[in-house]
């Protein structure tokens, strides 16, 4: 004679109470979403880094800003963030020159403002969904804990009618309840890791953008003063 109690994972999930199951479903959904964002963000950031490196290469190796600008506007769809910044800055510069302004500080500040606006839009696009990862990372352990607490409350409440309270009376309930904590952690850990990694990568990209903006506005300022050559 042996008491067989099957506590496989599936039976733990199926046997849980409704609220605990809702919590589990929520956590599963959140985990799926965060993994989807992790993968898509990974590819996006890789692409952004590659395009930035390519454009920096092309920019510092070419002496003709006009042809660079034409290339940037021509294949609009495949250009990266840095190219967009350059494009908006150079367009502003051309407008100033075509209007015949000679005040170089006005030209420079105008160009800088235009580039800053594009830079902020680009940063916003790069940082999209990062907030979601951060939220998942910080909140889903609590959600899991909530499910666990609820499950343990139920496990103990079922003890009230049992005279001899043994560990085996509460053990299945507690095991059931702890599954939600495990799921919460499972959702949170990759999200936190990904958030930290991507935030760091975006920071470095933004530093590259900003330094490029400074350098490019210097170049344009020189061009505004001496219209010939760089």
């Amino acid at each position: 004679m042996s008491v067989t109690t099957d506590i496989s994972l599936i039976s733990l999930i199926i046997g849980a109470s409704v609220l605990v199951q809702i919590v589990m479903g929520l956590l599963l959904l959140v985990s799926l979403m965060s993994w989807a964002y992790i993968f898509s963000k990974m590819v996006t950031l890789q692409k952004a880094k590659r395009q930035t490196a390519q454009f920096e290469d092309g920019f510092w190796n070419s002496s003709d800003l006009q042809s660079l600008y034409l290339r940037a506007t021509a294949n609009n769809g495949q250009t990266g963030s840095l190219e967009h910044i350059f494009e908006s800055g150079y367009r502003e510069f051309q407008r100033h020159r075509s209007s015949g302004t000679q005040d170089s500080t006005a030209v420079t500040s105008g160009v800088q403002r235009a580039m800053k606006a594009t830079y902020q839009r680009e940063m916003d696009a790069l940082e999209s969904h990062l907030a979601f990862l951060a939220t998942v990372g910080s909140v889903s352990p609590y959600v899991g804990l909530f499910g666990t607490v609820w499950g343990i409350m139920n496990a103990f409440r079922s003890l009230t009618n049992v005279g001899q309270a043994t560990l085996s009376n509460v053990a299945p309930g507690i095991a059931e309840a702890l599954v939600t904590t495990a799921m919460g952690l499972f959702a949170a850990i990759p999200a936190v890791v990904a958030y930290n990694r991507y935030a760091n990568e975006i920071d470095r990209l933004s530093i590259r953008f900003e330094s490029f903006m400074e350098e490019f506005s210097n170049i344009l300022q020189r061009q505004a003063r001496f219209p010939l050559g760089r």
């Binding site: 979403m33 993968f39 952004a48 967009h84 494009e87 916003d124 696009a125």
Partner: peptide, 9 residues
């Protein structure tokens, strides 16, 4: 102004 589009996953 062209901006990198912000698509979901």
């Amino acid at each position: 102004v062209t901006v990198t589009s912000d698509k979901g996953a």
